[in-house]
Simulated assay, not measured.
Amino acid sequence: MSDFDPAVSTPAEALAVLQEGNARFVRGERLHPNQDADRRSAVAPRQQPFAVLFGCSDSRLAAEIIFDRGLGDLFVVRTAGHVAGPEVLGSIEYGVSVLGAPLVVVLGHDACGAVTAASEADRDGSAPAGYIGDLVERVMPSVLSARAAGHTDIDSFVHTHIRRTVDGLVGRSVLLATEVAAGRCAVVGLSYQLAGGTVSVVNSHGPVPAASR
């Protein structure tokens, strides 16, 4: 799949590389791969990331750090609450169709501020002013869905939001749905624990091992 990292060619391999990197991060044994001058020169002419990372904008969710990766490894798209508009969908499709990444990751986290704000707006009956209110409204369906399922805590709302985001990407993007159906790509939802640094799989579409689901 990639001249720079030929060991990563399938969605399952890409997910395994991310999980292994996260395990090193949690243990405090990061290798800091692909972060030297040679790598900088190698990727200057072109990029071939092995994963698209669509995550929350939270400052504690720096993808290359928590997955122990480097330059050219991840095509990163971030918005508060990983809210996906046309710009996000276009960026993800670019990472998959043009850059050839076999994996799309939706990365959420516990105690998410956007999900918390949506929960409070639902409880109080009023949304924040300005474009923050627009963002909260776009997270609100996940909160309502979680409440309807009997959940009451923020982290359950977060998992529901991650799951709905993953499902929504595949449902809204014909390109992603086609790539997933053909087995060339997987879309996986991960939840990050801010204190512990670990990630866990919430849901997935596409060819990743059942043990990873």
Rank of each mutant, 00 (worst) to 15 (best):
S59Q: 05
V96E: 08
G197M: 07
F54H: 01
I132D: 14
V105P: 00
H109G: 03
A44P: 12
V8G: 05
A210P: 10
A111C: 12
R46Q: 15
V208S: 06
V106L: 00
F75G: 05
L74G: 01
V8H: 02
A101H: 04
E137I: 00
A44D: 14
G95P: 07
F4V: 14
G133Q: 10
E64T: 15
A84E: 02
P11K: 06
C112V: 05
R138L: 15
L15G: 04
A14I: 09
G133I: 15
V180P: 00
A129I: 13
S126F: 09
T10Q: 10
A211Q: 12
R46F: 15
E93S: 10
A146R: 08
G125Y: 06
I65Y: 12
V17H: 15
H161I: 10
H109F: 10
G196T: 11
P6L: 07
V208M: 04
A129T: 10
F25I: 00
A14T: 08
D134H: 15
L103M: 11
T10D: 01
G171P: 09
L103V: 08
V136P: 01
R213E: 08
H32W: 14
A148R: 04
L175I: 02
A129K: 12
A177P: 01
A127M: 12
R78E: 04
A118M: 11
A44F: 00
P207C: 06
H151P: 04
L71C: 11
V26I: 13
V170E: 04
A181D: 12
L31C: 13
R60I: 07
S126M: 14
G113F: 03
G90Q: 08
D58H: 01
G206M: 02
T79N: 09
F157R: 00
H109T: 12
P209D: 00
L169P: 02
F75W: 03
V158W: 00
L71N: 04
A51C: 13
A111D: 13
I92K: 01
A121L: 06
R213F: 00
V77W: 03
T79I: 11
D36T: 07
A129L: 12
V188G: 01
F4M: 12
R69I: 07
E179N: 05
F50W: 15
